[in-house]
């Protein structure tokens, strides 16, 4: 059995025919050719596959694509384009918040809304708060140090430059 669903992925609406059991992660990866959606555990424990469904971070490995019919999906590809220009992406690079890069899209999609919220509040979070915000994501390479520093930098710089969008 297959079902036609319409997903608006990174701003473009498209209808695809899928089996009901197909995971959102697989549909984004294989039907939409979005290589930035990574599957780390496929049981909802590592956060690698995090995407935004109607603006909220969701685990694409625990979501069926059919659950997202009519919804807007954003993946890491939408964040700062091919040059990775989003302030959080730039901060990740400056602070060495990534090594092998496999978990990175999931961290970015988890933390981008957190950074936006802190900038909107004009508040630089404590390290413990940053670490709590990423507690659903596993990074095996960096020891988290650079990621914490990147979040701090992205928030601080946007507050200072006033470039934040609420």
């Amino acid at each position: 059995m297959t079902i036609d669903i319409t997903l608006t992925v990174n701003g473009t609406a498209r209808t695809v025919r899928v089996e009901p059991r197909r995971l959102l992660a697989d549909v984004l990866r294989h039907d939409f050719a979005l290589s930035g959606v990574h599957v780390g555990c496929a049981h909802g424990a590592c956060g690698c596959c995090t995407v935004h469904v109607d603006g909220t971070p969701r685990l694409a490995c625990l979501t069926f694509a059919v659950q997202c019919d009519g919804k807007a999906i954003h993946t890491v590809e939408s964040l700062g384009g091919v040059d990775a220009t989003h302030p959080l992406q730039q901060a990740f690079s400056i602070e060495h918040g990534l090594q092998c890069g496999y978990c990175t899209p999931g961290f970015l999609m988890t933390l981008a809304p957190f950074v936006d919220a802190m900038v909107a509040e004009r508040r630089v979070p404590e390290d413990a708060e940053i670490r709590e915000a990423m507690s659903g994501n596993i990074c095996r390479c960096t020891g988290y140090h650079g990621i914490v520093a990147a979040v701090r930098r992205a928030v601080t710089e946007q507050i200072e430059t006033g470039s934040a969008q609420p």
């Binding site: 990866r29 930035g36 590809e77 890069g101």
Partner: peptide, 19 residues
Amino acid sequence: VRRVEDRRLLSGAARYLDD
């Protein structure tokens, strides 16, 4: 020196085995 690898890893353009 900042890493030249980062751009493709951050943007989602990197191609791992499953790609």
